[in-house]
Simulated assay, not measured.
Amino acid sequence: MLEAFVFATILLGFFGVILKKNLVMKIISMDVMSTGVIGYYVVVAARNGLFSPIVDSASRDEVVRPVAYADPVPQAVILTAIVIGLSIQALMLVGVMKLARDNPTLETSEIEKGNTP
């Protein structure tokens, strides 16, 4: 059920990018889609009963029983995706600000009409 909601969030963002004509709404839709992808990754990767992969000196001396440790690499990948998404969103907003200086509107059809040779 949760996977369906996350997948719906991805589709909502995708259709927002395709169907919206305002550039700011396209940027917001891309952020929604990015959040849905990160959420889907978290839902798929979530498991119960995993322990942190931290080994201390006390656990080395005792008899170690096999436990399932969480892999830290997917966590690092998700943090990197969040940072990259934030920086891309900021870059797109700067581009829209530069377009807004030259154009009275942020509608893509109007910008294309004004800049076509």
Rank of each mutant, 00 (worst) to 15 (best):
F5P: 00
V6L: 11
G16C: 10
G16P: 08
G16R: 03
V17Q: 05
V17N: 03
I18Q: 04
K20I: 01
K20P: 00
K21E: 15
K21N: 15
N22C: 07
L23C: 06
K26Y: 01
K26F: 01
K26I: 13
I28K: 08
M30E: 03
M30S: 12
M30W: 05
V32S: 07
V32W: 09
M33D: 01
M33E: 10
S34H: 07
T35W: 04
G36L: 03
G36Q: 04
G36T: 04
V37D: 00
Y40G: 02
Y41E: 00
V42P: 00
V43G: 02
A46W: 15
A46Y: 15
R47A: 10
N48E: 13
F51Q: 10
P53C: 04
P53V: 06
I54H: 02
D56T: 15
D56A: 05
D56I: 12
D56Y: 08
S57I: 14
S57M: 09
A58N: 09
S59L: 07
S59P: 00
S59M: 11
E62Q: 14
E62G: 09
E62S: 14
V63T: 09
V63K: 07
A68S: 14
D71S: 13
D71V: 07
P72F: 05
Q75D: 00
A76V: 11
A76G: 12
V77S: 00
V77W: 00
V77T: 03
V77N: 01
L79S: 11
L79Y: 05
T80W: 04
T80F: 13
T80E: 01
T80L: 14
A81C: 11
V83T: 11
V83N: 01
V83R: 00
I84N: 02
L86R: 03
S87K: 05
Q89E: 11
A90H: 01
L91F: 14
L91N: 10
L93K: 09
L93R: 05
L93D: 03
V94Q: 06
G95S: 11
G95I: 07
V96T: 09
M97I: 11
M97A: 15
K98G: 00
K98L: 13
R101V: 13
R101P: 00
N103Q: 13
N103T: 06
N103F: 15
P104Y: 10
P104H: 08
T105F: 10
L106I: 09
L106W: 02
L106G: 08
E107T: 05
T108E: 05
S109A: 15
S109D: 15
E110H: 11
I111F: 09
N115A: 07
N115Q: 10
T116H: 12
